[in-house]
Write a protein that binds this DNA or RNA. Sequence first.
DNA 1: AGGCAAAATGTGAAGGTTCACATGCCGCCC
DNA 2: GGGCGGCATGTGAACCTTCACATTTTGCCT
Lengths: 344, 344
Amino acid sequence: MDKAMAEGGRARRVTMLDVAEAAGVSYQTVSRVINHHPSVKPETRARVLDLIQQLNYRPDRAARSLAAHRSWTLAVISCGIEFYGPMQMLINIEHSARVAGYDVLNANLGLHQEVSLHSALDRLFSWRVDGALLIASVAAQSAEHVIEQLSGAPLILIDTAYGSSAPSVIIDQHAGGVAAARHLVDLGHRDIALICGPDDWYGALTRREGWIAGLRDAGITPALIEAGDWTPASGYQAATRILDADVRCTGLLVGNDAMALGAISAMKARGLAVPGDVSVTGFDDMPESAYFDPPLTTVAQDFPELGRQGMAYLIDLIGDPEAANGQRLIPPRLVVRASTAACA
Amino acid sequence: MDKAMAEGGRARRVTMLDVAEAAGVSYQTVSRVINHHPSVKPETRARVLDLIQQLNYRPDRAARSLAAHRSWTLAVISCGIEFYGPMQMLINIEHSARVAGYDVLNANLGLHQEVSLHSALDRLFSWRVDGALLIASVAAQSAEHVIEQLSGAPLILIDTAYGSSAPSVIIDQHAGGVAAARHLVDLGHRDIALICGPDDWYGALTRREGWIAGLRDAGITPALIEAGDWTPASGYQAATRILDADVRCTGLLVGNDAMALGAISAMKARGLAVPGDVSVTGFDDMPESAYFDPPLTTVAQDFPELGRQGMAYLIDLIGDPEAANGQRLIPPRLVVRASTAACA
DNA sequence: AGGCAAAATGTGAAGGTTCACATGCCGCCC
DNA sequence: GGGCGGCATGTGAACCTTCACATTTTGCCT
């Protein structure tokens, strides 16, 4: 009968001591091998490694965390991951973390903070996470609160307020907004309406400010400003409100691609052609957007890169807490397709 | 100076002992309070609870796992979460787990198993997870391998092979496929082509089988079978191949909504009307699909429910390993919109 | 050859919790 | 009123690792 089977039949966990014994060394030597400590004789290391393999030994992370006062685990607090952007960030955050040897514990707060930040932190903090990354797309989350709870562990904000001085990485959505607005202006449009995202999203605000700044440069003020909740349905409704309002409008700046899809659908339902009667821009450049009818002019955001850079920044900070140097910006890119055309 | 600040300034962790001392009880009593043990005098419990609050004490999960041989953590192994369905599952799995008091450690294998199942398991297993849930959409993952590694912890499969006898939950995509096919047949279509998902996805296979079964009932065999990789771009290409082939085709069954979008785009590019010349169905019912042009007839899958039921099943199994009773099915729902019409 | 630094390895303690068991106390029954 | 069962609480050990330090071995210099 296998020695690893204790009485009762329940498999006993293979421990460092088992390996040590089998290899004829002390447990400390095994520990050193695991942790890549330099001063282990190559021969010994090989023997231990071999036994680890044979016995299928895996270090116990709980015991490790307890003894070492660190967990090789990072917390990611997220919200709105049902949307394209945050999701892309999350996937790439996790991947980058893994590559760097960290595990990720994810707390998703839900769209409307159904899960309180406090309870999420309670959970995460009890794991002694080595650092945290907050997808702070929504304004309600107080970063200060997070910092306090982390008691010293570094924190990075992603997709947060434009111009924040906290260690953070964002896509320069202001520049993206300016580019989209300027694009319409360059096409000769003067009567332009906006469909923003929800007010409590930093991104929605920054995009709007970018649009308005871009229009102001050309001496234009928006004909009308509506808002949606990022969904196609809300884009449809917002566009309908704009059409119902008695304002001339040949250009429409929309806060994301999904709402733009809804808006275009609403236009068509009223017999308006896109871009014949109204030019429409989106924001995000999701994979679907190039296949809309018409293919959507939009502002591409490199969400994966945002995730990667956020994690890179965090790992920098874990290595050297003094490495914090404010906000890092990732440039967006205007992608011109067929949903915009010269003003008739 | 705060007692919690040890020499050096680094904050010392508040432990059970601190609480015990402050409350004038033994550490064991504090432990009992935390674990809701019945035999603690209400008065004592209140005092301890109060001190926990005051000292901002949080049990250390590493120490807990170590001592209790369980972690209140569940592993979720996923792949393809860049797609709508798997992502929805994941979000709801996590949420259900949280509600049930578990944390979730996520290992995303990437679309093409860039991260090997083996290494993912290594990581997860080292946490002594109490159970695991595998989003087994892709065939390459060997569930047996997972089970072996878990050494006894229960495992649930989600979105896996139709008819698998392992504890699993899937959406009845076969029925969905039959419904979509029958819908086209009922509209009078006889010349029908298919655009499947990738062959290594169980869902792609099952949908195809459903379609073919539905068509066979009407004495029809598919005019042509193409495949894509779920993306709109691949749908566009697959549809182009079908148009290039010299076969008559008035109906198109597509494996998901994103590819259907691409396919419709390809049709239009060739001057074909949807549904005038060709009727198209999708699969999934993403939020965008109702706003496509034309709004897409599709098969709605309740991914959130899939996630929830998967987690419920897993928690059942953790409570009672004998509760395993094979595969559970969730019915899909045909959503008829404007992309399908009677055959001319 | 003697001695000394560096390399290689070992030892004891600590980390924060739970488990199994021991203790003290109360009320209750006959 | 002696004993007994249940509740409330406490004690010692165990979980598996890392850390700090002690010890042994090796290699090299003079």
